[in-house]
Design a protein around this nucleic acid. Structure first.
Length: 109
DNA sequence: CTCTTGACTGAGG
DNA sequence: GCCTCAGCCAAGA
């Protein structure tokens, strides 16, 4: 594992932790903020190890606002429940007011 | 070392 | 607006 890779993973966790309450972002937005817009998949892969790192992975979805990573949570609808608890409208693993709750790290940080 | 898979995205039909 | 294809990078078999 190269140091650069570790740095990339650490940055992903760092950005994810800075997502405000009731807001969400996309893998691509994080990847772009990390100067690696082509590594959006790596962001998702990094989130796979987010457990135990205090990273709100449920606030990170794909560009369509779809909860593609819900299967990685314990329950089938746990991710959706967490988002709804923060005031985000989610129907069938799809964020409805995605444009309103979307949070771009490049704009806020 | 090669092939497959994946929590993605953008472009083209 | 929906579907398909290609590019991308890392990890596991």
């Amino acid at each position: 594992m190269k140091p650069e890779t570790l740095n990339f993973f650490e940055k992903v966790y760092e950005v994810a932790r800075q997502i405000p309450y009731g807001r969400v972002t996309s893998y691509g937005a994080i990847a772009k903020y990390l100067a690696a817009p082509r590594s959006a998949r790596m962001v998702g892969y990094a989130m796979n190890g987010s457990v135990g790192k205090d990273v709100p992975a449920h606030r990170v979805v794909n560009r369509n606002g779809l909860l593609t990573g819900k299967h990685h949570f314990d329950g089938t609808n746990l991710m959706q429940q967490l988002l709804e608890s923060e005031g985000i409208i989610v129907i069938n693993s799809q964020i409805q007011n995605f444009d309103e709750v979307f949070w771009d790290p490049a704009q806020e940080i």
